[in-house]
Design a protein around this nucleic acid. Structure first.
Lengths: 197, 197
DNA sequence: CCGGAAGTGTCAGTGACTGTCAATCATTGC
DNA sequence: GCAATGATTGACAGTCACTGACACTTCCGG
């Protein structure tokens, strides 16, 4: 078991991103629902069956990048100092998301993805499901750090609240990408838990 | 346009609930994904085509009751006094949910539904999508009450935070239905916004 | 008795996704 | 250099959710 990424996995990633790029341009042009998997596969130059060997579902083509961002978030959160209030740790864990929006290149890409997601209820549902999964992971990370004295339900709710801020701040992004960072700070300051720590 | 419910709509509702009852028992017995629409239709005694005349999708059979609860929530929220802090209004709007869990009959039913939803990623996604839609409605209700001086993004985040508490409190319910009310109070007290109102 | 409205069954079709099998292609051991 | 081996692929068939079209029945007012 060498490093985490073998030679094969690298080429697999290459094919995946080739598929993703092709698919996304089709989605932008025709819409998500209106683009069939057959079309995507044909555009890439492979069979439909092979498409499903690289992505478990049509949704995953769009949501794949999100999964990697999620892992990043979880790592960041776990690396925060143990004494730090949870709310602050969560805000800091979101930094890579803010940074992404600072980069003009990925910004346009992300905004396009966001528009594709919002345009299809089916995709939106999948997207929310992934966010849900991510929240469970982050809650677990927080729980390990806090020890047994913390209330897991409250922890879960706190992570959910932080994500609500993130999600709400993503809305104005379609119009003004620069608004994201300040928006997140504003909402997370406004929702900062007052009573309990 | 007489009253909201004509004679025909009543019988339609009757058929819908007959389908829903039949389907749910099948879901409990075999699981959601493993139960086909054909089986449900056959069990009810109708064609597959007719099933889709009563429910737009297989998901909707399970999530239908949620939609009606959602309308109730929105009405309650709109009826709260204008001066009341948003967080408190949201907590009070959730009262009917708590009440439902107080009733031993609907409690068992709801717990079963919750288990079905958790058992299928596909259904969970649909469920979260409905919650998302509900949150938009409640945000709108809050926005109308607050006037133009309120920050819509913060309002959206606040509704999301309250739903995070609701969602988190629904988790221990599978084991102990009585825990829901206290759990909700605890999480919403812990997450109560401290800085801005 | 007749007209239309509403509900239903049947059938055919689309699109996402899966299982299977045979062919191909690169790698490895000899 | 070559054969065994394992991974990758395409082709094909099948399942399942869902939709559109059409024909048929029933019921109800005129």
């Amino acid at each position: 078991m060498a490093a985490g990424t073998s030679l094969r996995e690298v080429s697999r990633r290459a094919v995946q991103s080739r598929i993703a790029r092709t698919a996304e341009s089709l989605f932008v042009a025709k819409g998500f629902e209106e683009t069939t998997v057959d079309e995507i596969a044909a555009a890439v130059g492979m069979s439909q069956r092979s498409f499903f060997r690289y992505f478990a579902s049509k949704d995953e083509v769009v949501l794949d990048s999100l999964a990697r961002l999620g892992e990043d978030l979880a790592e960041r959160l776990a690396a925060r100092p143990p004494g730090e209030p949870e709310w602050d740790s969560l805000r800091r864990a979101f930094d890579p998301v803010v940074e992404r929006f600072g980069d003009p290149v990925s910004r346009g890409h992300d905004a396009a993805i966001q528009r594709i997601i919002d345009g299809s209820p089916r995709l939106l549902a999948s997207y929310l499901c992934r966010l849900e999964h991510l929240q469970r992971m982050l809650t677990e990370a927080l729980r390990e750090r806090a020890g047994d004295d913390a209330d897991p339900v409250v922890l879960r709710a706190m992570v959910g609240g932080a994500f609500a801020c993130l999600h709400a701040s993503a809305f104005p992004v379609v119009d003004d990408p620069d608004a994201f960072g300040p928006c997140l700070d504003r909402t997370m300051a406004a929702l900062r838990p007052g009573a309990a720590r």
